[in-house]
Amino acid sequence: GLEHMADEEKLPPGWEKRMSRSSGRVYYFNHITNASQWERPSG
């Protein structure tokens, strides 16, 4: 619920959580730099 939404908002600017269609794993994508990574971004 609300706790999940608050957790999402802690991601650094530009980052969003996405799911890989090929593997079904969650990864993180930065739409500003077009960077993507499996680890949760910090800072």
Results as ranks from 00 to 15, higher is better:
1 G>K: 12
2 L>Q: 13
2 L>V: 14
2 L>E: 11
2 L>F: 13
2 L>S: 14
2 L>M: 13
3 E>K: 08
3 E>N: 11
3 E>W: 03
4 H>W: 10
4 H>G: 12
4 H>F: 12
4 H>T: 14
4 H>A: 12
4 H>K: 10
5 M>C: 15
5 M>I: 13
5 M>R: 08
5 M>A: 12
5 M>T: 12
5 M>Q: 12
6 A>V: 12
6 A>H: 12
6 A>Y: 11
6 A>P: 12
7 D>P: 10
7 D>A: 10
7 D>V: 09
7 D>Q: 10
8 E>R: 07
8 E>Q: 10
8 E>D: 14
8 E>Y: 05
8 E>L: 07
9 E>K: 06
9 E>C: 15
9 E>Q: 08
10 K>L: 14
10 K>S: 14
10 K>Y: 11
11 L>S: 01
11 L>F: 02
11 L>Q: 06
11 L>K: 09
11 L>R: 01
11 L>G: 00
11 L>E: 14
11 L>D: 15
12 P>K: 01
12 P>R: 01
13 P>T: 07
15 W>V: 01
15 W>Q: 00
15 W>F: 01
15 W>Y: 02
15 W>I: 00
15 W>T: 01
16 E>G: 04
16 E>F: 05
17 K>E: 06
17 K>P: 04
17 K>W: 03
17 K>Y: 04
18 R>S: 03
18 R>P: 00
18 R>D: 00
18 R>I: 06
18 R>Y: 05
18 R>H: 04
19 M>G: 03
19 M>K: 12
19 M>W: 15
19 M>V: 15
21 R>N: 12
21 R>I: 15
22 S>F: 13
22 S>N: 11
22 S>W: 09
22 S>M: 09
23 S>P: 05
23 S>G: 08
23 S>V: 05
24 G>L: 06
25 R>D: 03
25 R>S: 04
25 R>W: 05
25 R>K: 09
25 R>L: 07
25 R>T: 05
25 R>N: 04
25 R>E: 05
26 V>I: 11
26 V>A: 07
26 V>S: 05
27 Y>E: 02
28 Y>P: 00
28 Y>F: 07
28 Y>H: 00
28 Y>K: 00
29 F>Q: 01
29 F>D: 00
29 F>H: 06
29 F>T: 02
30 N>A: 01
30 N>F: 03
31 H>R: 14
31 H>A: 11
31 H>V: 15
32 I>Q: 08
32 I>H: 10
32 I>K: 07
32 I>P: 02
33 T>Y: 05
33 T>F: 06
34 N>S: 08
34 N>C: 15
34 N>K: 15
34 N>P: 00
35 A>Y: 09
35 A>T: 14
35 A>I: 15
35 A>L: 13
36 S>D: 02
36 S>T: 12
36 S>M: 15
36 S>K: 13
36 S>R: 15
36 S>Y: 14
37 Q>R: 05
37 Q>W: 03
37 Q>G: 01
37 Q>S: 07
37 Q>E: 02
37 Q>H: 03
38 W>L: 07
38 W>M: 05
38 W>K: 04
39 E>P: 04
39 E>T: 08
39 E>Q: 09
39 E>D: 09
39 E>G: 08
40 R>M: 07
40 R>L: 06
41 P>I: 02
41 P>Q: 00
41 P>S: 01
42 S>A: 09
42 S>Y: 10
42 S>V: 12
42 S>W: 10
43 G>I: 14
43 G>P: 11
43 G>Q: 10
